[in-house]
Design a protein around this nucleic acid. Sequence first.
DNA 1: CAATATTGATCAGTATGCTGATTATCAGTA
DNA 2: TACTGATAATCAGCATACTGATCAATATTG
Lengths: 162, 162
Amino acid sequence: MKDNDDMPGHLARRFQQIAVAVFHAEVDQAGYDLTPVQYAALAAISINPGIDQVTLAGLIAYDRTTITGVVDRLVQKGLLVRNASTKDRRARELQITGEGQKTLEGIAPAVEAAQQLMLRGLTAEEAEELLRLLRKAIAAGNELSRAPLREVPEAGQGRPVK
Amino acid sequence: MKDNDDMPGHLARRFQQIAVAVFHAEVDQAGYDLTPVQYAALAAISINPGIDQVTLAGLIAYDRTTITGVVDRLVQKGLLVRNASTKDRRARELQITGEGQKTLEGIAPAVEAAQQLMLRGLTAEEAEELLRLLRKAIAAGNELSRAPLREVPEAGQGRPVK
DNA sequence: CAATATTGATCAGTATGCTGATTATCAGTA
DNA sequence: TACTGATAATCAGCATACTGATCAATATTG
């Protein structure tokens, strides 16, 4: 009977569990009320203003149905606006608000601290290696989940390599 | 502005996402209907018959409130029985059924295949190193989540090392 | 152009995972 | 023994995540 500690799936769940807990602890303490997922969405929209929800989902590897609720809550909090697109009436264009931008900036130190804290058991070299191995494993498994990472389809570019 | 690929929290979420997808794919294909969490609970109960829910939670690092629903569903499927303890009327003793044991054995190859598959982008050495680093990071962060790993408090033993 | 296929968003339903509260029971102590 | 604190389980409520379906709008093709 295999030990849980030899099961990558089990270790993945636990590491993520700790990562989320650390994120919440740091962010709450800094006086903000944002989840890791909400933060990632907000940051992505800030960098890609006017993005639609499907593209946003691909950019941060969310399921498309999860996005609806996440965006709902960010709009509710006044950090985003969601407007129907003029080019494609099916799509909604997402824009960050001033409040959203201010939140994103104010929360940055807490987010940074959380990223450090979840690696606190590792040396700098080990942390670097862990990230490298995670990136490599994720790249190989990207297409296996319903929410793979996708490039932003820039209008003025050729198709993405993959 | 930091890239998502440099954020351990983001990588943790994606790796876990892929791990769960791979688990479901393999298990479904083998003709079973068990989630990763249900599998872990079932396996832990098989090894520790008569365990109560709090101890089970500590053993596999679940939140205690999550256990209730997970056990509910396993009982519903006929893989577990949950009886009031005679020694402590607050506690419920969990036992695996014959059906549960059969499921656990039948599902083993699929679970094994899933664990391999989620590491398919890595060499054997890299996979080993990834697991080592995850274990180390998790050990350091164990107490930071609401659902830390706990030793089984064996009646006839001294206190666990940690 | 009309029929077909695809796509963006949403919804219903299920299963984690958490916070915080409640209830029943147990353990220790004044 | 009565009181106090701790503990096992559950519940309500919220936020991911996913499956599969639906609806409106766009794209493709015969």
